[in-house]
């Protein structure tokens, strides 16, 4: 118990240090190249390098999730591992990380300019969607039966209790990105529990979780070498 608490504190401490250090309030913010470089996600660059437009980063309990859509090649293996671990069956429709949907024509397509817009038929850009783990959860707040709440078993990520879920679909509607999905086979909703498996197995590091441990080490070395 002491160990757990200590580690949590260390993680939180690193998280705060890191946010202070990077000078950004990370939470879907575009992250600069220098910051990505520090955490091993980008080539060596000057500190004044422009932000990597295609990369966004989110602070998760276990580390930084960096999602760089320029690296996403549309393999959809993230969907598969999510299904395998959380549904026990393969069903990308309900996967809590999504690539297939935006694969052809991007999130908005097909429009008249489809040949130049995002998507495989256009400029080839993929748009993987991940749960943002919002501080103020649209899904949780909208659920009429309080089926969505923080679960200590999942690092306090918000989780759907399928016993309570009545399959009304309000969570999916309320989420601005429609991440929770009703499974047409079970009638239940589900959402991302921040397990990081999608990133663990991504073949191109388009999704990558940098553990706070590693960030701590990188910060320490940075300071030793450059401070």
């Amino acid at each position: 118990m002491e160990q757990e608490k200590k580690r949590f504190f260390e993680n939180e401490q690193t998280r705060r240090d890191f946010l202070k250090f990077s000078g950004k309030s990370v939470g879907g913010a575009i992250v600069s190249l220098s910051v990505l470089n520090l955490i091993g996600c980008a080539p060596e660059e000057e500190a004044s390098a422009p932000p990597v437009e295609t990369a966004v980063a989110f602070a998760l309990p276990q580390g930084m999730l960096v999602a760089d859509k320029a690296k996403c090649t549309g393999c959809q293996r993230c969907e598969s591992i999510c299904n395998a671990l959380h549904d026990g069956k393969m069903q990308p429709y309900t996967a809590r990380v999504r690539v297939a949907e935006n694969y052809n024509y991007g999130p908005d397509g097909p429009k008249i300019n489809w040949a130049n817009a995002d998507g495989n038929f256009g400029n080839k850009m993929m748009n993987p969607e991940t749960c943002k783990q919002c501080r103020e959860p649209f899904c949780g707040n909208a659920c009429p039966v309080d089926a969505i709440s923080a679960d200590p078993a999942w690092n306090n990520a918000r989780v759907v209790d399928t016993e309570k879920c009545v399959g009304c679909g309000v969570c999916a509607e309320a989420c601005p990105w429609h991440m929770p999905r009703l499974d047409p086979e079970t009638g239940k909703s589900s959402k991302c529990v921040s397990c990081g498996a999608c990133a663990t197995y991504c073949p191109t590091d388009a999704l990558k979780v940098i553990p706070w441990e590693d960030i701590k080490t990188a910060m320490r070395r940075y300071k030793r070498n450059f401070a």
């Binding site: 240090d17 910060m219 320490r220 300071k223 030793r224 401070a227």
Partner: peptide
């Protein structure tokens, strides 16, 4: 130990 003040130069 590692918890020395990080602002100090080595």
């Amino acid at each position: 130990t590692e918890e020395e003040a990080p602002e100090e130069a080595p």
